[in-house]
Simulated assay, not measured.
Amino acid sequence: MAKRTAGESVMTILWLGVVGYLLLTGLMFAFQRTLMYPAGQTLPEIEAVGLPGLSEVELTTKDGLLQRHWYVPARKPGAPTVVVFHGNAGQLADRVPKFSFFADAGYGVFFVGYRGYSGNEGSPTQSDLVEDAATVLNWMRDQGISPEKTVLYGESLGSGVAVQLAAEQQFAAVVLEAPFTSVADVAQAHYWYLPARWLILDQWNSLAKADMLRAPVLLIHGEQDAVTNVRFGRQLLDAIQAPKEGIFVPQAGHNDLYNFGLRERVTNFVAQTITVQ
C-alpha cells in the first residue's frame, strides 16, 4: 500500500475539520430551541410559595393549549398590575419570591407561565410566546385592568416579549431587566466561531422595535453580565425614543441585580408613572 504524502494528510485533516464544523453547525441549528428555551419543569403547589392572595389562572391559547399562570390582585384601589415575563431559565415558583415586593407595595402581579414551562403544555417559539402573552392581556382587560394600569416587566428573554407587546400598544410603563438588542446578536457573541446570526429562527429583535415604544421605560442591567452583555442594554436604551431611564450596576451580573438595592428604585419608577387613587 502506498504511503500517503504529507499533502494528502493535510488535505484529510482539512476535510475532517470542514465536516466536523458543518456537523456542529447543523446540530446547533437543529437543537437551538432546546438551548434557547430550557423548559419542562413541573408546576409546584401554589401554596408552597407563600404569597398571600396568589391564585392560579387557567387560560386556553389560540391553538387550544391549557396554560397555567399565577396572579395576585392589586390591594390598593387604582394601583397597577405588573405583568412579569421571566427569563429563559425561569419558572413561576422561583419568580414569586423575586417579585413579591410589587405585591407588598399593593400592586397586582401577574406571573406569566410560558408554554412548555412550569408544567404547561406545548413548546415555546417566539410567535407562540407573544401570542400567549396577548391572551393574558386580553384576560386582564376582561377583568377591568386597562393597559393604562398595566406595567410590563421583561426579564432577559422576557424583555423580548415585553418589547414586542409594548411596540404594538401603549401601557403604563415597561421595565426591562438584562435585555438584549436581539437574540441573534447574543448568539453571535457567544458562538463567534459559527454563523450563529444566520441560524437563529427566533430572532427576538428588540432593537428593531425600540423606537415604537411609547410608555416610559426603565432599563436595568449589570455591567458584569456574562449572558447578555451590557453593551446590548446600552444600545437598546439609546434606540428607545420614549421617556426612559437606565440603571447600570457596576458589580452586578445577569441574575443578581436585585442584590444591589434595586427594589425601591423599581417600585418608585412604577409609582411615578401611575397615580394611585
Score class of each variant (00 low, 15 high):
82 V>G: 00
262 L>W: 12
268 N>F: 15
111 F>V: 07
232 F>G: 02
233 G>C: 04
120 N>Q: 09
48 A>W: 10
186 V>G: 02
260 F>C: 06
127 S>T: 15
170 Q>P: 14
248 F>C: 06
23 L>H: 15
2 A>D: 15
138 N>G: 13
228 T>G: 01
26 G>A: 11
191 Y>A: 10
129 L>W: 05
242 A>K: 00
175 V>G: 00
138 N>F: 12
270 V>G: 02
96 V>F: 02
71 Y>S: 03
102 F>T: 01
78 G>N: 09
182 S>K: 04
253 G>S: 09
8 E>H: 09
186 V>W: 01
167 A>T: 13
155 E>N: 08
211 D>S: 13
265 R>T: 15
173 A>Q: 01
236 L>F: 07
56 E>S: 11
213 L>M: 08
200 I>L: 14
224 Q>A: 03
244 K>Y: 04
65 L>R: 13
65 L>H: 14
262 L>D: 09
110 F>M: 00
70 W>C: 04
82 V>W: 01
245 E>L: 11
184 A>L: 05
242 A>F: 04
164 Q>S: 13
65 L>A: 12
186 V>L: 09
161 V>S: 03
84 V>M: 07
172 A>C: 10
96 V>R: 00
257 L>H: 02
177 E>A: 05
199 L>S: 11
5 T>L: 05
104 D>E: 14
266 V>Y: 03
10 V>K: 08
80 P>H: 00
9 S>N: 12
67 Q>E: 08
25 T>F: 05
147 P>S: 04
14 L>S: 06
57 V>P: 01
193 Y>A: 13
198 W>C: 14
156 S>P: 11
21 Y>R: 07
87 G>A: 05
62 K>L: 13
216 P>N: 03
251 Q>Y: 12
17 G>W: 01
55 S>W: 14
150 T>D: 01
269 F>A: 06
72 V>H: 01
152 L>S: 02
28 M>G: 05
128 D>H: 12
191 Y>F: 15
184 A>P: 07
209 K>N: 13
17 G>K: 03
87 G>C: 05
258 Y>C: 13
72 V>T: 13
114 Y>R: 04
119 G>D: 07
132 D>H: 03
59 L>A: 04
189 A>Y: 10
134 A>W: 05
18 V>W: 04
66 L>G: 15
67 Q>L: 13
260 F>M: 08
117 Y>A: 03
263 R>C: 11
137 L>R: 00
208 A>R: 06
154 G>L: 02
218 L>R: 00
77 P>G: 05
120 N>F: 07
240 I>R: 02
48 A>P: 12
104 D>P: 10
52 P>G: 03
134 A>P: 11
119 G>H: 01
121 E>P: 11
16 L>D: 08
117 Y>V: 09
46 I>P: 02
105 A>L: 07
204 W>A: 01
144 G>Q: 09
211 D>H: 10
160 G>E: 00
222 G>F: 00
40 G>V: 15
81 T>A: 00
72 V>A: 04
147 P>T: 01
267 T>E: 09
8 E>G: 07
155 E>D: 12
130 V>C: 07
159 S>P: 08
90 G>M: 04
